[in-house]
Every structure is written in structure tokens, then in C-alpha cells.
């Protein structure tokens, strides 16, 4: 793959900032009791994976997402206002307040939806890839999944079917090492051996440092291009780290505070990329500050929009059950 353009580098930096600001704002609204419903699952620390994958896709490519899916949607091009409005269960949300944070979709930007049950969205992306192949398009489907989802049978069924039918699917594994609130190495036998897993299933394997947005973008781009040209499915193994708990205010008994602090200090994907951009000489500190300011403003605007939006009309409760 060719090196990303300066414009793409700026988009990457902006998108990662947007995801972080959005997640922090959602957590703040949760803490203040404004986002009082459901759970909020922050993807802070994992921004490079969503961004690198999302920006390697075309607008008409499909993704399916997880309970930790705000970043996937933002990187795919979701409107922060409508996403935040959905978190706050408002009528202006993508799903008109029916879905919420864990069940949001945005079909117009190629999101088949976030599926709260771990692994549940993976087969649906496989099915969408099947449809595109049968229709003769060159659209690719990318299901996001965590390494905890490797405990779900349907995920393995998905690997298998995508392989035997040679479907244009890139399985994007966010390998953060934690399955909800238990360490994956205790729960998932092949947790650190995804290359062998992929080989056994006949998936092309791409292993990357998921804290390095350029590496993710490059590998995702190659995996997607190969899938698009009919070379079959791939597994994109992104080693990453979740800076926050499973949900806002989770006690995190499975790791020590020092570990999190250390990872924040040494493995922050935004700080890492910032240093790279400054070092490249293509961006000044002022350029980057302007991009971060813009994402902060967009998120403030989204939060304001969501908080002042009306609730769905209760008389519409039975809408959308049937087509």
C-alpha cells in the first residue's frame, strides 16, 4: 500500500480524537446521571483500531459492531449528533431511541449494527458479504469482535463459513486481552495464537500493533483490497488495550491500577501518532491542536444537540416491529 496522504493522516488524527472525546463525553454524561440508561462501554485506548480499519473502508462497505461500538461508527462516518442522541434515547438518534448505545446501527454509512450479545454481529456481516458476492458487487464486510468473542461458537462458525464460501470478509479482532471482566488468557485457548487459528480456518492473517494507527490502516487496507478482489476472507489481529473498565465505573478486579497507568503512559495510540506526525514535519503543534479543538467542539455540539432533543412520542411505541 502507498503511504497515506497528508489529508489522510489528518483524518486519522482527527478521528482518533473524535472517538476519545466522544467516549469521554459519554462517560461524563453517565457520571452526571444525564445518560442514565443502559451501560456505556468506552473504547478509549482502542481508537487506532477503529480508525485504521474504518478509514480503510469505502462508504458502501459494511461493518458490524459490538457493545463497544461508538468508535467503529464514528470512524465509518456516523454523525456524532445522531449517535449521541441515540445514547440518550432520543427521537433524533439513529434508531429513534429504540436501540441505544449497545444496539445502534447506521445503514446509510454501512453499519449493519452494533450487537450487544458478544459475537452476535459477526455472522450477520458474513451474511451481508454473501449477499454482496451473490449480487456481484465488490463490497466488503468487516465484523469487529473482541478476543473475548472467541469463546462464542457462532464466531467460529463465521470463520468457517466465510472460508468455505470464500466470502469478502475481514474479521477485525480487537485483541485487548480482556473478556468483559476476566483475562482472556484464562478463558480463550488460542487467545495469543490467532495466526495459527487463522491458518487452520483458511483465513489470510494480518497481525498488527493495534496502538499504531498507521500499521492498522496499512494492514486493514491490504486485507480489504484482497477481499475485494476475490481473494477470500482474512483475520486482522489488532493487539490493543482498553484504558477504561468494561463499563463506566466497573471495579476492574482483573488488573492493577499500575498496569493501566503504565499502559496509558506508554501505549496511548493518540500520543504515539502525535509524536509521529510532529516528527514527520508535516504537521505543527498548532495544526494538531486545531484538529483536537475541532473534535472537541463537534462532541460538545453533539452532546448539546442530544440533551436538547425531544424524546420519542410514547404513542409511537409499536412502530417498526414489522415492515
Amino acid at each position: 500500500m502507498s503511504d497515506p496522504s497528508t489529508e489522510m493522516l489528518a483524518r486519522m488524527y482527527y478521528t482518533m480524537g473524535l472517538i476519545r472525546d466522544f467516549e469521554n463525553k459519554a462517560a461524563e454524561l453517565f457520571t452526571r446521571g444525564i445518560l442514565a440508561k443502559g451501560g456505556v462501554h468506552s473504547s478509549v485506548g482502542q481508537e487506532a483500531v477503529a480508525t485504521g480499519v474504518g478509514l480503510s473502508l469505502r462508504g458502501d462497505d459494511w461493518i458490524s459492531s459490538t457493545h463497544r461500538g461508538h468508535g467503529h461508527h464514528l470512524a465509518k462516518g456516523a454523525d456524532p449528533r445522531r449517535l449521541m442522541a441515540e445514547l440518550l434515547a432520543k427521537d433524533a438518534g439513529y434508531c429513534r431511541g429504540r436501540g441505544g448505545s449497545m444496539h445502534v446501527a447506521a445503514f446509510e454509512i454501512g453499519s449493519l449494527g452494533a450487537y450487544a450479545m458478544v459475537g452476535e454481529g459477526v455472522p450477520i456481516a458474513v451474511g451481508a458479504a454473501l449477499a454482496e458476492k451473490m449480487k456481484g458487487t465488490d463490497r466488503v464486510a468487516v465484523p469487529f469482535l473482541g478476543d473475548g468473542a472467541l469463546g462464542q461458537g457462532v464466531v467460529h462458525e463465521s470463520f468457517n463459513l466465510a472460508s468455505v464460501w470464500r466470502l469478502p470478509v475481514v474479521f477485525a479482532v480487537e485483541r485487548n486481552g480482556i473478556a468483559v471482566s476476566t483475562r482472556c488468557d484464562q478463558m480463550v485457548a488460542p487467545s495469543t495464537r490467532l495466526a495459527e487459528l487463522a491458518q487452520a480456518y483458511g483465513l489470510r492473517y494480518y497481525g498488527v500493533d493495534g496502538q499504531d494507527v498507521l500499521a492498522v490502516h496499512d494492514a486493514a487496507g491490504r486485507a480489504v483490497a484482497a477481499a475485494r478482489s476475490g481473494q477470500g476472507p482474512a483475520l486482522l489481529d489488532c493487539r490493543t488495550y482498553r484504558f477504561e473498565g468494561h463499563y463506566a465505573s466497573e471495579p476492574q478486579v482483573y488488573r492493577r491500577r499500575e498496569e493501566i497507568d503504565e499502559m496509558r503512559r506508554t501505549q496511548d495510540p493518540i500520543a504515539h501518532f502525535e509524536a509521529y506526525l510532529l516528527d514527520s514535519g508535516l504537521f505543527s503543534t498548532a495544526d494538531l491542536e486545531a484538529l483536537r479543538r475541532r473534535s472537541a467542539e463537534v462532541v460538545e455540539d453533539a452532546a448539546e444537540f442530544a440533551q436538547t432533543s425531544p424524546e420519542p412520542d410514547p404513542s409511537t411505541y409499536a412502530e417498526y416491529v414489522y415492515a
Binding site: F107, P123, G127, A128, L130, E132, E157, S158, N160, L161
Partner: peptide, 19 residues
Amino acid sequence: PISESIIAGAALGSAVAGL
């Protein structure tokens, strides 16, 4: 394959994608 979950899941994915 003998995989009822993905039979249903792939059916759903293909249905929302237009088949």
C-alpha cells in the same frame, strides 16, 4: 456446514443486504 447459528445469521445478514 452443520452450524445452525450461522445458517440463521447469514440468512439475516443477506436479508438486510437485499436478498
